[in-house]
Amino acid sequence: MALNYDFEWGLLLENPHKEWIIEGLAHTVGLSLTAWVIALIIGILIGTIRMTQSPLLRFIGTAYVEFFRNIPLLVQLFIWFFVFPLMLPNDLMFAWNRLPHVPLITALLALSLFTAARVAEHIRAGISSIPKGQFDAARSSGLTQVQMYRHVIIPYAFRVMIPTITSEFLTVFKNSALTLTIGVAEITGAAKAIEAWSFHGIEAYTVASVTYMTTTAIVVLFMSWLEHRLRIPGLIARK
């Protein structure tokens, strides 16, 4: 099978391609890091309220998770981008449309809320994995429910959950590629633009793939180091 294709790797270093790639990298990394941090905060909140005694709070938590997990991210992006501004009162809508980088802000909003639902699931699984004795011990030493979570359960659960929480970063990192559909110039979008511009798809998509694969490799290495550092004595190490 003859491959009918002329490789021209040099064109990646030519402008405007080089600028697109650099901008794409910055957007992908910046967007996914920010979204991940916001998602952790919201996710921990939602995950925790799902473990409380109050049926109302539990229902809110469950509804949040089911809602965001069962609608495809791309549909959510479109709703935040096309529908959400229409739902705002008029003056707010104008203010929203006047914001700089509306696509970027929308992408951040959608990615954070979507990822938060996934984080909340991991948090719940982590908390459920804590032996019941920890809860009893905390309560019997006189801690209130909030204190119990704050000082005993969450620090414990967090260490159990480090692998899933870190790999959630990789999920956001990959999901950020979807934001090209609403006009965020992230790395996959940059690669697509170079392909459309020069028809050198192999070179362009290689840049994007290498970005994702290198990041994955780095995060996986970091994760195993961190997991080793923070393992809870007495728990059997994974693998």
Binding site: M1, L3, N4, Y5, L170, K174, N175, A177, L178, L180, T188, A191, K192, E195, G201, I202, Y205, A208, S209, Y212, M213, T215, T216, A217
Partner: peptide, 23 residues
């Protein structure tokens, strides 16, 4: 390799590659 790439990028890859490979 597949698991470290976003689906959208894989779709772009194949959308570009399949016609070239099959001619």
């Amino acid at each position: 390799i597949m698991r470290s790439n976003p689906l959208i990028l894989i779709v772009f890859w194949f959308f570009f590659l399949v016609p070239i490979l099959t001619g």
